[in-house]
Design a protein around this nucleic acid. Structure first.
Length: 500
DNA sequence: CCCAGAGTTGCTTCT
DNA sequence: TAGAAGCAACTCTGG
């Protein structure tokens, strides 16, 4: 057992070396005091049940890459296994830890963990350094600037940060001293586990379209930042939700895992836009990054942000329960080819276009199935590579017209919406292959095809492909009225509160 | 207190 | 064929 003191950097959602101030703080502290340096990542025992297989693969790839990059500067990643709140106090004692650095995260579960660990550190005189480095702006100062409340509109948010100077990114380049290598530096038990070792059978996963890691994230960033004209002309609403190859950057998984610094993305975008005529928020690429910031401020400043009950920004809506419909939606078996194609792409690849998310989120909640956005958020949490606590909850509330967005009578049509950008239904043919041979006329509405056409196409609705679980034309109108009623109740409650 | 204007991205029909 | 109007009509912000 070592008697030498140890500095720990606890990696969570900051799986990178670049622009990682907390990590640099740890390195400096260890070098200056000639302490051991242990950059750690905690893998929870039930990780397989918490994170979907695709995202778990992305995470392990990111950790592998992080280890490689740490070794380039004469360190390594120490994977430790157990429940953070039980394991870390034990390890910190064993390793004689005196200094801990980590990034500020706002995921409710991480916040709860932090409180426990920080309390332990205080008792044991372990100095803790926390850095705000997951977002471009410090969300607490934005809330302060808004007199303690969260901005409820995007434009309001933009006005709050308009004159904020964004700090430069920082780099870690130099080799770490050999003195910082602990005696157990070479131990095998700390290596990044394989998918198999965490209980995933890799052969069950499809081809990996978006490999995890800082190296891959930076590469992807550079590819897109070199397309200056494309960046400057970017308008989100005009990008296609159903192109076969993504019409947007797919940088989101890298940013959500912290493989890519949001601040670096910000500065690169500024560079590209500089001196060029370019689109503006909310539709520009910069605007997309600002949407993330917007939701981070909202998530940080709202209690129970990921729930309906006890959430002050969320309109209370009497959603129904329907396990059969929920399952059909999650598995891509609603009988609406466009909805099913999106849900199947999500499950297979872990990424779908933002507007595709709109389509299926509206369908599950206020549009068709009248099921709570919380149920949808859980499914997205499972499948999305770019799952992010505040963005997921915030966007689900938006789409279900529970917060931030209120025009509930604007309902996406599972038939009309996709046709705008994919008349032939090539996207549906790829992800719902049983409909591959349908004539374009019926590809969005196979139930309308005459039986003979269905037979010729080799897919009879009700036998080879599900019947529609609801009739959109009828049900969406009923749901608008239900929304109307829920809003009315909400308004009355608010008026009553004001009187008191 | 009220009012006007704005709000990332709806659908259908008509011109 | 792109753009506007009709549909029915929400909340937040700022004056």
């Amino acid at each position: 057992m070592s008697t030498l003191q140890t500095v720990v950097h606890w990696f969570r959602l900051d799986l990178r070396l670049h622009d990682n101030l907390a990590l640099r703080n740890a390195i400096n502290e260890a070098e200056n005091r000639k302490h051991y340096l242990k950059p750690i990542y905690v893998i929870e025992p039930d990780i397989k049940n918490k994170i979907g297989a695709n995202r778990l693969r992305f995470l392990l790839q990111s950790l592998q890459d992080l280890d490689v990059n740490l070794r380039k500067i004469n360190s390594r990643l120490f994977i430790v296994k157990g429940r953070a709140v039980d394991l870390l106090p034990e390890l910190f004692e064993k390793w004689n830890v005196k200094f801990l650095t980590l990034q500020v995260d706002i995921d409710a579960e991480l916040v709860k963990q932090d409180e426990i660990i920080e309390k332990f550190c205080e008792e044991k005189d372990i100095f803790v350094v926390k850095r705000m480095q997951h977002t471009v702006y410090d969300f607490n100062s934005v809330i302060k600037k808004n007199n303690g409340g969260i901005p409820l509109t995007y434009q309001k948010f933009l006005s709050l940060v308009a004159d904020t100077q964004v700090k430069d990114t920082i780099e870690i380049a130099k080799q770490i001293s050999d003195d910082c290598k602990s005696t157990d530096f070479e131990l095998e038990e700390y290596k990044v586990p394989s998918l198999e070792e965490v209980g995933i059978n890799e052969s069950e996963l499809l081809e990996c379209k978006y490999p995890g890691g800082e190296t891959e994230g930076l590469k992807r960033l550079n590819i897109y930042m070199n397309k200056k004209q494309w960046v400057c002309n970017f308008e989100k609403p005009n990008s296609s939700p159903n192109s076969i190859e993504p019409s947007t950057t797919v940088l989101s998984p890298y940013i959500s895992h912290g493989c890519l610094s949001a601040k670096l993305f910000y500065h690169k975008l500024k560079q590209v836009e500089n001196g060029m005529k370019h689109t503006l928020p909310p539709v520009s690429l910069m605007g997309q990054l600002m949407w993330r910031e917007f939701y981070y401020v909202a998530g940080a400043g709202t209690k129970n942000f990921d729930k309906m009950v006890g959430n002050t920004v969320c309109t209370q809506i009497p959603w129904g329960k329907n396990e059969v419909h929920l399952k059909a939606w999650a598995e891509g078996k609603t009988g609406y080819p466009f909805v099913d194609a999106i849900m199947r792409q999500l499950k297979q690849e872990g990424w779908i276009h933002h507007l595709a998310r709109h389509m299926v989120a509206c369908f599950l909640t206020r549009g068709d199935l009248w099921i709570s956005w919380e149920e949808g958020a859980k499914v997205f949490e499972d499948y999305l590579l770019d799952y992010d606590w505040s963005l997921n909850a915030g966007n689900w509330m938006w789409l279900s017209a529970s917060a931030f967005f209120y025009k509930y009578y604007r309902v996406y049509s599972p038939v009309a919406f996709g046709k705008k950008t994919d008349k032939e239904g090539l996207y549906i043919r790829k992800y719902v292959p049983e409909l591959k041979k349908y004539p374009s006329e019926f590809i969005y509405e196979p139930w309308k095809a005459p039986k003979s056409v269905q037979r010729t196409a080799g897919c009879v609705v009700g036998e080879d492909y599900p019947n529609r679980i609801v009739d959109h034309d009828k049900v969406h109108k009923v749901n608008i009225q239900k929304m109307n009623a829920a809003y009315k109740v909400n308004k009355e409650k608010k008026a009553l509160k004001r009187k008191r």
